[in-house]
Each structure stands twice: as structure tokens, then as C-alpha cells.
Design a protein around this nucleic acid. Structure first.
Length: 769
DNA sequence: AGAATGGACTTTTTT
DNA sequence: AGTCCATTCT
């Protein structure tokens, strides 16, 4: 309680009472973490230890004790969801007025905001466009064309991620060119500088820039740095193990003045090394701040003891980790259940039955989460749940703002704000088609490239480009269209502009051209976008400009949408599950090659990351945990046999039982190292197994023969007279069925599109009546 | 110029 | 199995 007596300026009794209320109900370690406000502190927090609680209470405590005004506080997270959750809790503790002034958000959104304010100092304008990977790829494709680099030999993705990696490591183009070894790296090095220039000319930033540009600014402009250093007296960072180099440097600079930096992290939950996260940052923290206090939150409030013991036995297989001893006062709980399935369909069915069972026993659907390694795995589970009539929601996959129809509208809106945005221009210059073909486009792009100008600048002087009269007319029409949108963007509210864009661009006609259910959904999505814009304008009357809206939606993820309403089972990747908890958790696809992924199993570092991912998944569970593995899985267009994951064999005995109720016995030393250090792998990994099958022609027949067997069950329910549902065509009635096995076809009469003949193997019809 | 067809390739996780 | 790309067709 001495802390509270230290309030210097105005020790108000109501605040003091509030402050002690805030720490009330916390355990000793948590209270320590909350009240250690001054100076650097590193909070090493295990899963389910109330880490978010500590952060929010700490912020509330700072305000209540008068140590800081809300705007003195910076709190950085990795997802919008985490930020929103923190804000909600702080509101409960200190009230709206105080909570709204806090600088709280994801790294990217906070620094996007800083860039808006400081744009002029960096030779940008504040209405810059944010490029996602899709936009980047569009730029790269153009550059590769220009530099005669074959995208078949050097995939765009590979080039993009190489350059992105270089950027996050803060390697300059010249440096990168020096260290480039492989032909692919050399190509990337060649494009690095032109890419930066293209983005600059387009007034665009990629995700990396959102962190690098502020860093650049703070480094070269001491005054600006000082401004933010003195504004943010208290800096908080959640999920510190996920910070990359740039984020590390940024926060180090920002906290340099007050040194009140509090970071919370768990090295065992680091699962984002693939995008540049550096666990080393946790270790460096203690080196950078010698006086740093290290606090540990080791009590787990979330899971049963058995689940926690399982998690512990998993993570113990990693060599690289900080020592932490997790414990809980919770019940021992039930055994973890391993479900061994024949195929991915069988797996899905087992899960579906379990969920029904659990539901009948009084749980809600929303208590259950099904986790998987790759997004593609959701399909079979969705199908099983749909068939059983169990409501579910899928998080991730294609997010709303990544849908084509939305991206098209957004591209036009971006052009209305900034016509020099090259990626958006390339996207829509001929969509909907308006007579600007490949050849015309190429001429414009060449003209622009020769003069180091943007395509839009070339279009502005289209007479000089030397197009045919017809092409020139078409381009001029496009230019007039965009110019018109630009004018409106200045005078009209953003949602009005959006409506006009949808009408004027021809996107509306495009969607209405064909009456399919697919197009109807697309149209609804577009309408939803318009209302989202309207809502944004209304709730941000001062800053609610179109460009701000566009910037903010670029930073949204599907997982951020707060659709917790409704009693539904949640399906998502293990990555997306981080930070969440559920009474009942299913972890699926525990097979070699899938989890751990084939490529990850080759490298020790990556394998350890996969293992941490498993650890994250297991620790999401509160009461019940189910693990599942399938003997075979339909993948990459063919049925493959699978081997159960080594992760299962690494677990401690006595924690897992099989469905039949027996003890699961792990096989030890399944993956012994050979003397050479490489794992004897080729026989077990389905990925390689499949490659071997392909290499020898004799064996591939065997594989084909096997596949037929699995296909036999297909289509049995589809007989003339039944009502079926198709993903695209909707509801229809089966008229006739012909052929069998892989060749089986059905003639179906659909309400929307009339009669169609479909190959059952591809059509994925669902019987609904 | 634009639609339709055919083939190769891909499959990690995401701010 | 879906996507993207190239080629061929109308």
C-alpha cells in the first residue's frame, strides 16, 4: 500500500480507494505486477495466468493513482480484438472518459495513426494507401514483367516474402544485393529498390512500412521523437514474444525517456517467428534494461490439472525455452481423449458426435472450439456439422475485406482518394471490362515505366502514349470516371461516394448480369460495405474521411470481428486461437506432415515452433480436451495415408486415453536421429511418401487402386427425387443419376439456374430433403 | 477485345 | 480441388 501514499500532486481519497479496489482480488504475483509501475518490467506469464487482467488493472491503477493521464499511456497489442478486449475491461474499471483517451491498439494501427499526423515530415501525404500482400503482388508482377523475370521460375510470393523479410530485418536494398546468394535472392534484390520507389510514387505503404517509416522518422527527427517520448510516459506491450526487430526498436526508442516500459510475454507461446517475430527480444530486454524487474505469473486459472500437465509435457521437448513452472489449484479434471479416425470424414463425424453429446449434457455450442493447423481442414468439419444441424462459425480464411467484390469497390474508392495508387489501378482499369485490353495496358505501363511515373500520370497525358484512337477513347473514358469519383470524394460524404462508385463503375451491372445465388451474396456484401462506411462516417465525424476508413480496413482481420453472439461452435486455425479460451477444445489433424507440417519437421527451429503451437492449442482448453488423428486424409486432390503425429508420442503417460477408454501408449524414439543428424523421415512423412509413389510408376497404380475404395461411399444418398443443395446453384431436385464411382453424374433441376448435369465427385451436393 | 478452354501448380500459419 | 496463367476460340 506504500505505492498509493506516494501520489505526489493530489492525493485524493476517492482515487486511493479506487486504487486499492483495483488490486483487490488479485493474487500476490498479479498484485506485484500491477503495482510495479515505475521503471522497466518484464512479466513472464504462462497461459491462463490472468495476463490480460494484469495489464488492464495496471493501466487502471496508473490512472486511479494519478500517475498518468489516459493520454500518457500507450498500450500495444497484436490484434484489434485484444485491444478491444482491453479497452472494454478498462472501461469497467475506470469509466469511459478515462478509457477513451488511452492510446491503445495494434502496433500497425497506432503507427498508421502516427504516420497520418507526421506524413509531411516523411514526404508522404496523410491519405496514403496501405497495401496488403495482394496489392504487393500486383506491384511485383508488374515489376517482374518490366525486368523480364519469369514468375514461373521465381514465384511472386517467394520474391515478396523475401523482400518483406529483408525489410523487417531492416536490411537496405544495397545490403541485400550484397548478401544475395541464390538466383531467387538475386532477383529479389534486383526488384527491392524499384519496389520501394513504386510504392513511394503510389503514395502507398505496405505492412512493413507502417513500422519502418515511423522508426525512420524517430531516428532522423529528434524533436518528433521527443514529442512522443514525453507524451507516452507508460508503455505497455502485450504478447512481447511476437515482436519483430522493428517493433522492438520502435518501442525501445519511445520508452527511452521515462523507462516505464512493461512488457508481457510467454516464450512458450511464440508462434509467429515465420513472420519475423524474434523471441530473442525477451532475452534482450533484460540486457537493455539492467534494472528491469522480472515478474512471473505461473499460476494457471484456466485449465484442469491434467490439461496443464499435458501441456507441460509437450513443451518440455523443446530445448529452447525459459524455465517456468506452471501450476494450478484447479481440479484434476478428466482425461484427455484421443480419437483415432479412419479418414478426415470419420474424424469430422467423431467430433460432431462428441459435440452433440456434450450439448445434450448441458453445455452450449459456443463452449466448443475445433482447432486445426491449416485453413483447408475446416471443410470436412463444416460439412459434418452442417449435416448434423450444429451451428458453427469459421474464423479466418477469407475475411470480409479480402473478398473480391469488396476489394474491387475498395480499389475504386482508393483511386478516388489517390489515383496514383498503382496496385488499385491495375486491379480495376479493365474491370468491369471497358475495352482496355492487355496490349493497351502494357503500352501505358511501358510509357510510365520509361519515365519513372505512375500509370495514372501516363493516363493524364494519354495523347503522348501513342495508342490507337479506339483504345485512347476507352482510356479517356476511364480517366473521366475516376476524376468524377475524385470530385465527389472531396464534396460528398464517404458512403455517398461509395454508392456512386458502385453504380458508376459498372460493378453493379456486373453483379446483376447473372442471377446466381453467388452474385446475390456478393451484392449483399457490397451493401454491407456501404453501411460499414456510413457507420464509420457517423461514429467518427471529425476524422471520418474516406481515406481513414480505407486505411483502417486494411488493418482488419477476420478474427477481429467481434461476432461472439449466437450459440455456435467455433472453427479456427491454431494460430487464430491464441489468446482465447474454451471449456471444450478439439485439436484435429495430429498427423505427421500436417501437424507438424512436413517442411517444419525438417528444421529443428521450425519443429519447435510447431510444438509451441500445439502447446498453445492445448492450453486453450478449460475443462475438456480432445485430440484427433486420421489414418488417411483427402489432400491435394488425392487420398493419402497418414501417420500419427510425433507430438502424441511425446506426451507424458497417464494423461490421454483412447475413445475405448484404454490408456494411450506412446511409442518412444519414433524419430531417432541418424548419425548424420537428419531425421529418418522419408518412410513416415506422407508428403515424401506421396512423392515416392509418384516417382515409381508401379506403386502409383497401387495408390490409385486404393483411392477408388474410398470413393465408393460417395453419392449413395443421391437418388432421383431427393432435394439437394449446391454451393453455387443453391437448392435443386435430383432428376436422374448415371454412372458410378468416380464417373457418377446427376442431373439436377435448380431453382435458380434450371437443369444442370454435375459430376458428383466435384459438385459436393448436400442432401437436404 | 473478350470469352472459353486447358494445363500447371499449389498448399502454413498473419499484422 | 481450386487457382492462376497461357493459349486458342469467337
Amino acid at each position: 500500500m506504500r505505492q498509493i501514499e506516494l501520489i505526489a500532486d493530489e492525493p485524493r481519497t476517492d482515487n486511493m480507494e479506487r486504487a486499492s479496489e483495483i488490486v483487490d482480488g488479485l493474487n500476490e504475483a498479479q498484485r506485484q505486477a500491477v503495482t510495479t509501475t515505475d521503471g522497466p518490467s518484464l512479466i513472464v506469464a504462462g497461459p491462463g495466468s490472468g495476463k490480460t487482467r494484469v495489464l488492464t488493472h495496471r493501466v487502471a491503477y496508473l490512472i486511479a493513482t494519478g500517475r498518468a493521464q489516459p493520454f500518457h499511456i500507450l498500450a500495444l497489442t497484436f490484434t484489434n480484438k485484444a485491444a478491444r478486449e482491453m479497452k472494454r475491461r478498462i472501461q469497467q474499471l475506470v469509466g469511459d472518459v478515462h478509457a477513451t483517451g488511452i492510446w491503445m491498439g495494434t502496433f500497425h494501427s497506432i503507427f498508421a495513426r502516427i504516420l497520418r499526423r507526421e506524413a509531411d515530415k516523411l514526404n508522404f501525404t496523410s491519405d496514403y494507401t496501405i497495401y496488403d500482400t495482394d496489392d504487393q503482388d500486383r506491384i511485383f508482377r508488374g515489376l517482374m514483367d518490366q525486368y523480364n523475370i519469369d514468375p514461373r521460375q521465381h514465384p511472386v510470393r517467394a520474391i515478396r516474402s523475401m523482400i518483406s523479410e529483408a525489410k523487417t530485418q531492416m536490411i537496405s536494398p544495397s545490403e541485400f544485393a550484397r548478401v544475395a546468394m541464390s538466383p531467387q535472392q538475386e532477383k529479389a534484390a534486383q526488384l527491392y529498390q524499384p519496389y520501394i520507389e513504386t510504392l513511394h510514387r503510389s503514395n502507398a505503404m505496405d505492412f512493413d512500412d507502417l513500422l519502418l517509416k515511423p522508426l525512420e522518422l524517430f531516428r532522423k527527427d529528434a524533436e518528433t521523437l521527443e514529442k512522443y517520448q514525453s507524451r507516452w510516459r507508460y508503455v505497455h506491450i502485450d504478447e512481447y514474444q511476437d515482436t519483430n526487430q522493428a517493433q522492438y526498436q520502435l518501442t525501445k526508442l519511445l520508452a527511452a525517456r521515462h523507462k516505464n516500459i512493461c512488457v508481457v510475454g510467454d516464450d512458450a507461446q511464440s508462434i509467429y517467428a515465420f513472420r519475423g517475430a524474434d523471441i530473442g527480444n525477451i532475452l534482450s530486454f533484460q540486457k537493455d534494461y539492467k534494472e528491469a524487474k522480472v515478474l512471473r505469473l505461473e499460476q494457471n486459472y484456466r485449465s484442469t490439472e491434467k490439461i496443464l500437465r499435458l501441456a507441460d509435457s509437450i513443451i518440455k521437448n523443446n530445448e529452447k525455452r525459459l524455465d517456468k513452472s506452471l501450476w494450478t489449484e484447479n481440479d484434476e479434471g478428466e482425461d484427455v481423449v484421443l480419437m483415432e479416425a479412419i479418414s478426415e470424414k470419420d474424424e469430422a463425424q467423431k467430433i460432431e458426435r462428441r459435440i452433440r453429446d456434450i450439448y445434450v449434457r448441458g453445455h452450449h455450442y459456443r463452449d466448443c472450439a475445433v482447432l486445426y493447423r491449416t485453413n483447408a481442414q475446416s471443410r470436412s468439419i463444416e460439412e459434418a456439422l452442417r449435416r448434423a444441424g450444429i451451428p458453427y462459425r469459421v474464423i479466418g480464411g477469407l475475411s470480409f475485406y479480402q473478398r473480391k467484390e469488396i476489394k474491387d469497390v475498395v480499389a475504386y474508392l482508393r483511386l478516388a482518394v489517390n489515383p496514383h495508387d498503382t496496385a488499385s489501378l491495375r486491379r480495376v482499369i479493365n474491370f468491369p471490362t471497358r475495352g482496355i485490353g492487355l496490349k493497351t495496358l502494357q503500352q501505358i505501363l511501358d510509357y510510365a515505366a520509361d519515365r519513372d511515373m505512375t500509370p495514372w500520370a501516363a493516363i493524364e497525358e494519354i495523347e503522348e502514349v501513342g495508342l490507337s484512337a479506339r483504345a485512347q477513347r476507352a482510356v479517356k473514358k476511364f480517366a473521366t470516371l475516376i476524376a468524377e469519383f475524385r470530385d465527389r470524394a472531396v464534396t460528398e460524404p464517404a458512403d455517398e461516394v461509395a454508392r456512386e462508385v458502385i453504380r458508376g463503375s459498372g460493378l453493379l451491372d456486373e453483379l446483376k448480369r447473372e442471377h446466381t445465388t453467388e452474385n446475390l451474396v456478393r451484392w449483399e456484401n457490397v451493401q454491407e460495405l456501404v453501411s460499414a462506411i456510413a457507420e464509420f462516417v457517423e461514429s467518427n465525424p471529425d476524422t471520418g474521411s474516406l481515406s481513414t476508413f480505407l486505411q483502417e480496413v486494411s488493418l482488419l482481420t477476420d478474427a477481429d470481428d467481434d461476432h461472439t453472439e449466437g450459440d455456435k461452435v467455433t472453427l479456427m486455425t491454431l494460430h487464430a486461437s491464441k489468446g482465447l479460451e474454451f471449456p471444450v477444445v478439439f485439436i484435429t489433424g495430429l498427423e505427421e506432415g500436417l501437424f507438424p507440417l512436413a517442411r517444419a519437421a525438417q528444421e529443428k527451429e521450425e519443429l519447435e515452433e510447431e510444438r509451441r503451437l500445439f502447446y498453445v492449442g492445448v492450453t486453450r482448453a478449460e475443462k475438456m480436451l480432445f485430440l484427433s488423428t486420421a489414418r488417411s486424409r483427402y489432400q491435394y486432390g488425392e487420398q493419402q495415408s497418414c501417420v500419427r503425429s510425433r507430438f502424441l508420442d511425446e506426451t507424458a503417460p497417464g494423461l490421454i486415453r483412447t475413445e475405448a477408454g484404454g490408456d494411450f501408449t506412446a511409442a518412444k524414439d519414433r524419430f531417432r536421429m541418424r548419425p548424420g543428424g537428419r531425421v529418418a523421415y522419408d518412410n513416415v512423412d506422407p508428403y515424401y511418401y506421396r512423392k515416392n509413389l509418384r516417382a515409381g510408376s508401379g506403386t502409383s497404380d497401387r495408390a490409385a487402386g486404393r483411392r477408388v475404395v474410398y470413393d465408393e461411399g460417395e453419392g449413395g444418398d443421391i437418388v432421383p427425387g431427393v432435394i439437394v443443395e449446391h454451393d453455387v446453384f443453391g437448392e435443386g431436385k435430383v432428376q436422374a443419376v448415371e454412372g458410378n464411382g468416380q464417373q457418377a453424374k446427376a442431373t439436377v433441376f435448380f431453382k435458380t439456374v434450371g437443369q444442370k448435369k454435375l459430376v458428383l465427385r466435384f459438385a459436393r451436393l448436400r442432401v437436404i430433403g
